[in-house]
Simulated assay, not measured.
Amino acid sequence: MTNNEATILSPANHTGFTPSSFILVGIPGLEAYHIWFAAPLSFIYIVTLVGNCFLLLSVKTVRSLHKPMYLLISLLSFSDMVLSSSILPKMLAIFWSNDVEISFAACFFQMFLVHVFAGVESGILTAMAFDRYVAVCHPLRYPTIVTNSLVPKIAAISLTRAVFVVLPESLLAIRVPFCSRSIVHSFCEHIAVVKLSCTDISLNSAYGMGVTIAVGAMDLPSIGVSYALILRAVLNFPSKDRLKAFSTCIAHVFVMSLFFIPILFSLSLHRFNTNIPLYVHIIVVNAYLLLPPVANPLIYGVRMAEIRHGVLQLFQKEKARLCLCK
């Protein structure tokens, strides 16, 4: 970058501009180790795509999996793949080949997708907690309360809610004048982008934090109440039935923890730990966006016999098809 360019991009220039592209730093402070992140992230992306594709194909093709619980899991898998695919390809380009430039439009589209599908994921996990509550606490009424037709409605509500709350955030961000185009992050995260503005971003920051808190205030208490009622009901079960009841919830609790605990940790870092290195914040944010998508198909595939059976059926059908072709 020339001295003239540096002057134009300096935050001291309060006139602002709309850049044609941004520069993604990656993980600041760990630039020398980017290549070491590339291989495990590539592995994570491959496992995410393969695992979730197998899970989706299993639910689609095996009739015994055409049940609300498995349809909700397939919704989660689809959301996971969109979330990973909106972040990882560009991140891998940064780490493998130092391709750090991203166009203005691509950056804001990435920001929109990441925040929308993080909200969708939260909504689906909340619906899954309700599904487990009804299954454990009202098993006789489960077929009439949680039906296959309810699942598309849950998907539509989760997506509509996420778009409704994220769209104003994106519109507020896209209208600000920028004094720099170097994003100190590994993807176009909302607050990392608006920090490049020459103007006051208090409204953007407040809205972004408000959205996170509002969604959490809706979803986390709902999940907490569902599992409190499940726990109360299970403790009244005969001892031989308790383990079976708990086992139906273990996978969901683990998946939910992978998603929500890093979010809460990240919010705590922003609120209380100003001396924590920036790369720690960025790694934590990446953790809650990238770990659940790779872990979910593995967890559900291991924990749920019907999904394992569905995957085996897929392999058997493919093997039979190949034999017929010969």
Rank of each mutant, 00 (worst) to 15 (best):
M1R: 13
N3G: 01
N3Q: 12
N4E: 13
N4K: 14
I8F: 15
I8G: 01
L9F: 15
S10C: 05
T18L: 07
S21W: 08
L24R: 05
P28G: 07
P28F: 01
L30I: 03
L30R: 13
Y33I: 04
H34N: 10
I35Q: 15
F37P: 15
A39P: 08
P40T: 07
I44P: 00
Y45T: 02
L49W: 06
G51Y: 07
G51N: 09
C53M: 06
L55P: 04
L57N: 02
S58D: 06
T61A: 05
V62A: 05
P68G: 10
I73H: 04
L76W: 04
S77Q: 04
F78W: 09
V82M: 07
L83I: 02
S85F: 03
S85Q: 13
S86Y: 05
A93V: 00
W96L: 02
S97I: 03
I102W: 15
F104C: 07
C107M: 10
F108W: 14
F117K: 13
F117T: 13
A118N: 04
V120C: 10
E121I: 00
I124A: 06
A129T: 08
F130V: 07
V134P: 13
V136P: 08
T144F: 13
I145N: 06
N148A: 04
L150M: 13
V151D: 03
I157A: 11
L159Q: 06
R161Q: 03
V166C: 09
L167K: 00
L167R: 00
P168H: 05
S170E: 12
L172P: 02
A173I: 03
V176M: 12
C179I: 00
S182E: 07
I183S: 15
V184F: 04
S186H: 10
S186N: 08
E189Y: 04
E189Q: 14
I191M: 12
V194D: 14
S197D: 12
I201E: 13
L203D: 07
S205I: 12
G208W: 13
T212V: 09
I213Y: 15
A217Q: 11
L220N: 10
L220H: 05
P221V: 00
Y227C: 01
L229N: 14
R232N: 11
R232Q: 12
V234P: 09
L235H: 14
K240W: 12
S247L: 03
T248M: 13
C249H: 09
C249Q: 08
A251W: 12
H252G: 00
F254H: 11
F254V: 15
V255N: 10
M256P: 03
S257A: 15
L258S: 08
F265T: 11
S266M: 12
S266I: 07
S266C: 09
S266F: 15
T274G: 05
T274A: 10
T274V: 05
I276R: 10
I282K: 15
A287C: 07
L289G: 00
L290K: 10
P292L: 06
P293C: 09
V294M: 14
P297K: 14
L298W: 05
I299W: 14
I299G: 03
R303Q: 06
A305Y: 06
E306R: 11
E306P: 06
I307A: 09
H309R: 08
G310Q: 09
G310F: 02
V311S: 03
F315Q: 08
K317G: 01
A320Y: 02
R321V: 01
L322I: 04
C325N: 08
K326P: 01
K326M: 01
